[in-house]
């Protein structure tokens, strides 16, 4: 019996001696904050508003706003919607409340949050009813950015005739994890185009960028953000408009081929679209393949609405 124990212990010691403990340390800066498909996340705090409210009495509405995306929100707006016959603010309020919340960064990997509290007041339910169900709506409208920085391969050897090892290979790049924003770039297809006749010794990198709205809200034009949180009417053309800027190695890409160079725009259809961007100046064919930084910036407004049902109860007296 003792021999058995001795034998097992020795084997155990041998196995243990072969083990290497992991340090478990991760570089503090090695945090990719540009991940996920959330932007602003908003919810009613518990019991504000309460599920049941007596008529003709004040009650609090508290909103918990968290910026779970990687873009800072400046000049965001929050608008509350009531059934005006039964609920209203206790005092005169503006149409919408402005807010600012910083997004995720390597110094604040969770993003900032904000609480907005308002006081509302119920009105009389009416003689014929004991209760009245109502809904409180909260709509946020805010500017947001999707920034994607990636490395793209620039290979001037379009037909693969150069016989040499290459530093990189031109291929499609998929982005399944999002970029820390509700509108995400899902895929980039890279093509190397032969330059036009006037520059036969050059190739032009060409990128097909696929964009998708993966959030629960709607994309609006960045100049219509305030209007979206007001009682002003919006045109259908104000929705699904995204401005795009792209650069390769710091050189701007032309994303509006055949049209004006600045102010390239994407129009989402069924939450998706794609755009083609090309480097204006070609790259010398003699240059070998190299990896270049590709940056894409999408600029848009975003809006979404949450709601909570409440019941307004009549105060019954004998």
């Amino acid at each position: 019996m003792k021999i058995k124990i001795l034998f097992i212990s020795i084997i155990f010691v041998i196995i243990l001696s072969g083990c290497k403990g992991s340090s478990g340390s991760k570089p503090i800066t090695d945090v990719d904050v540009r991940q996920g498909t959330d932007g602003l996340v908003m919810e009613f705090t518990k019991n504000a508003p309460p599920d049941k409210v007596f008529e003709d009495s004040p009650f609090p509405i508290a909103m918990h706003l968290r910026n779970k995306g990687a873009s800072d929100i400046k000049q965001g707006f929050l608008a509350l919607g009531f059934e005006k016959t039964y609920v209203d603010f206790t005092e005169e309020k503006k149409e919408s409340i402005e807010f600012e919340i910083k997004g995720k960064s390597i110094f604040n990997i969770n993003g900032d949050e904000e609480f907005i509290t308002l006081n509302a007041k119920t009105k009389k339910v009416g003689a014929q009813s004991e209760t009245h169900p109502s809904t409180i709506l909260a709509t946020s409208c805010y500017p947001y950015k999707t920034i994607l920085g990636t490395s793209a391969c620039v290979d001037t050897d379009i037909f693969g005739t150069k016989l040499r090892d290459k530093a990189c290979e031109v291929k499609d790049i998929q982005f399944s994890k999002g970029q820390g924003s509700p509108v995400t770039i899902t895929k980039i297809e890279t093509r190397m185009l032969p330059s036009a006749d006037q520059e036969p010794d050059k190739v032009k990198p060409h990128f097909i960028i696929f964009v998708e709205n993966k959030g629960n809200g709607e994309v609006i034009a960045s100049d219509m953000i305030k209007d979206a949180c007001s009682n002003k009417p919006l045109n259908y053309k104000d929705f699904n408009r995204i401005k795009i800027k792209a650069s390769l190695s710091g050189q701007g890409l032309n994303c509006n081929i055949g049209e004006k160079e600045d102010g390239a725009e994407i129009r989402l259809r069924e939450k998706k679209d794609m755009i083609r961007c090309t480097l204006k100046d070609g790259i010398d064919r003699k240059q070998d393949a190299y990896t270049a930084p590709l940056q894409i910036e999408l600029d848009y407004g975003y809006t979404f609405t949450i709601s909570k049902d409440i019941i307004i109860e009549k105060i019954l007296t004998y």
Partner: peptide
């Protein structure tokens, strides 16, 4: 100044 992206991952090739 020229690094416009957060992360740049090139491959250094020595020939």
């Amino acid at each position: 100044d020229e690094l416009v992206v957060d992360k740049y991952e090139p491959t250094i090739l020595a020939t």
